[in-house]
Simulated assay, not measured.
Amino acid sequence: MPDRSDDQPLDWLEAELQDSLDEDYEIEFSEPMLSQEIRKIYRDNHPDLLDRKTYFRNLLRLQAELIKLQDWVEHTGAKVLVIMEGRDAAGKGGVIKRITQRLNPRVARVVALPAPSRREQSQWYFQRYVPHLPAGGEIVLFDRSWYNRAGVERVMGFASADQVEQFFQDVPEFERMLVRSGIILLKYWFSITDEEQQMRFLMRVHDPMKQWKLSPMDLQSRVRWEQYTKAKEDMFARTNIPEAPWYIVEGNDKKRERLNCIEHLLSRIPYTEVPHEKVALPDRVYNPDYERRVLPDALYVPKVY
């Protein structure tokens, strides 16, 4: 074995990249199980995708900053709420996954509510969202939010015109109340082109590992593309308030989308690095009279690999 005693220590980023490459490749295994023909069509339509090396280096750098943000949120008791909305297949789930990938789930959590129950439908519209708002020292990411009423509920006819109008009147003041209460509120809209959504839906149709992502609502979003566009434009016009503006993230390149969103999120929160005491691993206590018990083989998971 060669002597490495004279080697310079690796930069922390290089070390982290090497240590976690397998994990990251697994998470990044998003290329679907498609025929070579469909893969070629997709690559031909995306000639300027961000290269993997640049992506990983910047992702790891940004995730290190997210950990600093997490420490600051815990230390100061800040409350951070991030709303993620957008077209179906626009990549918001992938962005959420990269934001939370290295964070403490007790600090950063994701809220993705199902369709409202009959009881919830009879409540004040915002009522079912309120219990999930962040407390002090928490970061909450809403994977879709109360803006369902301005989008899918409106387009699909699940809400009446009066209900939609009431929503538009209420939501600005509701969000101002959240901001006045001390919540840092960020609202992101993930945008892709008509052609890109069509391509991604076709990929899901032909990928057995992603077909579960296609719901009847997703399929209807293709049929009603123009209706969703009009609903989105109305939503921006009536809910883009100074206290809680919308930020549009272009998503045709998923890697750029992730990096741009995280970079922007970090820029909108006034976090600072929190000093930490140096961690020292204590010595293990050895008891000379202790004998480890032999456990029965039936308790162990079979070593298939």
Rank of each mutant, 00 (worst) to 15 (best):
V140M: 03
E165A: 12
G94S: 07
P32G: 15
S160R: 02
I96F: 02
A64F: 08
V95I: 14
L113H: 02
E28M: 13
P116D: 08
A89Y: 08
A64R: 15
A115V: 14
D162C: 00
V130N: 02
R144P: 02
Q36V: 09
P105H: 11
L59N: 02
L141C: 01
D88A: 09
V82I: 15
F29P: 00
G137C: 03
R57F: 06
A150W: 10
Q121W: 03
L49H: 04
E37Q: 15
L66H: 10
L34Q: 02
A112H: 05
D48R: 12
S30N: 14
M33I: 07
E120R: 05
V80C: 08
L62K: 04
G136I: 00
R61P: 00
A78N: 12
S30L: 15
M33F: 09
N148R: 13
Y147E: 09
A161E: 14
A150C: 09
V107S: 10
E74V: 15
I67E: 11
L103R: 01
R144M: 04
G137W: 01
R118G: 01
V110E: 00
D48T: 13
I38R: 14
D71C: 08
I99C: 04
E65Y: 08
R109N: 13
A90F: 06
G93T: 09
L59K: 02
R106D: 11
G94R: 01
W146Y: 14
Q36I: 08
Q63F: 03
Y129T: 06
N58Y: 11
T100W: 02
K53R: 13
V155I: 05
M33W: 06
D48E: 15
R128G: 09
I83Q: 08
R109Q: 13
Q123E: 14
Q127K: 12
W72C: 10
F56S: 04
M33K: 13
L141A: 00
K79P: 06
G91K: 02
V107N: 11
L59H: 02
K40Q: 15
V164K: 11
F126N: 00
P114D: 10
W124P: 07
A90M: 10
R57P: 00
V140Y: 01
S35V: 01
D51I: 02
K53A: 13
R119M: 03
H75S: 15
V107H: 11
K40P: 01
A90Q: 07
E74A: 12
K97H: 14
R149F: 09
R149K: 13
A90D: 05
R154M: 03
H132N: 12
T76Y: 14
K53Y: 05
S30R: 15
F29E: 14
T76V: 11
Q127V: 06
